[in-house]
């Protein structure tokens, strides 16, 4: 067994204390790291041994809870999935871009939560059925149609990567629209008309210009950019049907 490789990392962290600071400032910590660590381990080391005032969110340490999203060397990353060995000895850590900073690496995320709720991200059955009617059945192919979108962990890295969200904060954004698409694609669901009222708007999918950054940074390979383009195609077909063929019933 080889000995674990040790490294001294200069961890440059953007800090902000709303009670005393008027603007964020960088603070550098010298952290003795094992090469097998992730950036979250380095932050935990700082918190435990150097500076207990450092604030950041984390929970599962295994890319499931989606709470440790931050900018690592300018790239939206889960701190628990950003391995030290992929970086040099100087690592810059900042709160997720495009979100207001609450304190240190903690951001204000109410905007996303409100937007996610607005697209009704839950099954809306086509018709109510008594329990005696049994379960709603679904074939493997019908499941496969939307399965990748169910992998979203609401980590908001896609919002941190999306320049259109940064430029136009009203934009509904990648994760919320791809979650709407997930339910629209579900064979058991009948709520598409209700969701279209929210997502087929100027501030909805039409603010997207397919930069594609959301899909590049997604730690779960959900491909929100693909979902949004599919929503555009479907909404465009809706529009032409509605305006050029009004006799066609939906």
């Amino acid at each position: 067994m080889s000995e674990l490789q040790k490294r001294q990392i200069q961890l440059e962290v953007l800090r902000y204390n709303p009670e005393t600071d008027t603007a964020p400032r960088y603070q550098t910590y010298s952290v003795p790291c094992l090469n097998e660590w992730v950036v979250l381990d380095a932050l935990n080391y700082v918190k435990d041994h150097i500076d207990p005032t450092l604030s950041y969110r984390w929970s599962c340490h295994m890319a499931v809870c989606g709470s440790c999203g931050m900018m690592v060397n300018g790239e939206p990353k889960l701190a628990c999935k950003a391995f030290i060995h992929e970086y040099g000895d100087q690592i810059k850590v900042e709160p997720m871009a495009n979100f207001p900073i609450e304190r240190d690496l903690v951001t204000t995320v109410e905007d996303f939560i409100t937007k996610l709720a607005s697209v009704k991200p839950y099954l809306i059955p086509k018709s109510d059925q008594p329990i005696s009617a049994g379960e709603f059945k679904q074939t493997p192919a019908e499941l496969k149609k939307f399965k990748q979108y169910t992998l979203c962990i609401n980590c908001m890295l896609c919002y941190a990567a999306c320049p259109q969200y940064g430029l136009v904060p009203e934009f509904l954004g990648p994760a919320a629209i791809s979650m709407a698409h997930r339910y629209n694609q579900d064979s058991r669901d009948g709520g598409r008309d209700q969701r279209q009222e929210v997502i087929a708007t100027d501030e909805g999918v039409w603010e997207c210009s397919f930069v594609g950054a959301c899909s590049e940074v997604c730690p779960k390979h959900v491909d929100p950019a693909g979902a949004l383009q599919q929503v555009k195609v479907a909404s465009t077909i809706d529009w032409y049907k509605e305006h050029l063929m009004p006799w066609v019933k939906k």
Partner: peptide, 15 residues
């Protein structure tokens, strides 16, 4: 929020 009329132009853009 009203539904957008951008689809008319986006349809031509995509085609």
């Amino acid at each position: 929020m009203a539904k957008s009329n951008k689809p008319i132009f986006w349809g031509l853009f995509a085609a």
